[in-house]
Design a protein around this nucleic acid. Structure first.
Lengths: 89, 89
DNA sequence: GCCTTATTTAGTGTTTTCTCTAATTAGAGT
DNA sequence: ACTCTAATTAGAGAAAACACTAAATAAGGC
């Protein structure tokens, strides 16, 4: 369930760019959307996929939803890829 | 072009499992196919995507095609993910 | 309670992915 | 040349992904 969703989420360039943007710190959905020419609903669907993969977490702040990176899942995916480098046990 | 194809290739569980199998050393298309319940043509399409992403390389040996891991591309994708861990420059 | 702002959910059409079976290519041996 | 094995390419259909516009939800200020 988990690892599949993570790699599926990472497969789209827009979603990877969203993660890049979040490296600079938490951002609202609207602020993120301004960096793309896509419509807000389209971006919202991308956010949902990143959230489903737990690559990002959401927190409400007034009327805004603030997204931020979830490092631990990223580390997990990372170490999964890392294991390719070691000879099979 | 390159990085997109790599993440696209990594997005399918079967293709990730193919890479896992290749960790044990080079294998022929047929030998790889035996590890799955999918048809050989289907697997062949997965091989093609991995090859397009340059995650694997092919070499003919008689009537067989031998696939093996291309570490350098894997390292590249890896360090690309790694950069998420560092604060933005 | 009503209006505004921020964002998501619903509905729709198009494009892409994934799988299959059938046909084709490539090399090796007789 | 013929045949066998190994693997790919071609064609087709079902399922999923992606983008849009329009409608719904949630919180805050008047």
């Amino acid at each position: 369930m988990g690892i599949n969703a993570v790699f599926e989420a990472l497969s789209h360039p827009v979603r990877r760019e969203i993660l890049q943007l979040l490296r600079g710190g938490p951002m609202s959905a609207g602020a993120l959307a301004e960096h793309f020419t896509l419509s807000k609903p389209t971006l919202s669907v991308h956010f949902a996929k990143l959230k489903e993969a737990e690559l990002v977490a959401v927190e409400r702040q007034g009327t805004s939803l603030i997204y931020h990176l979830n490092m631990s899942i990223l580390e997990e995916a990372l170490s999964g890829l890392m294991s390719f480098r070691e000879p099979k046990p």
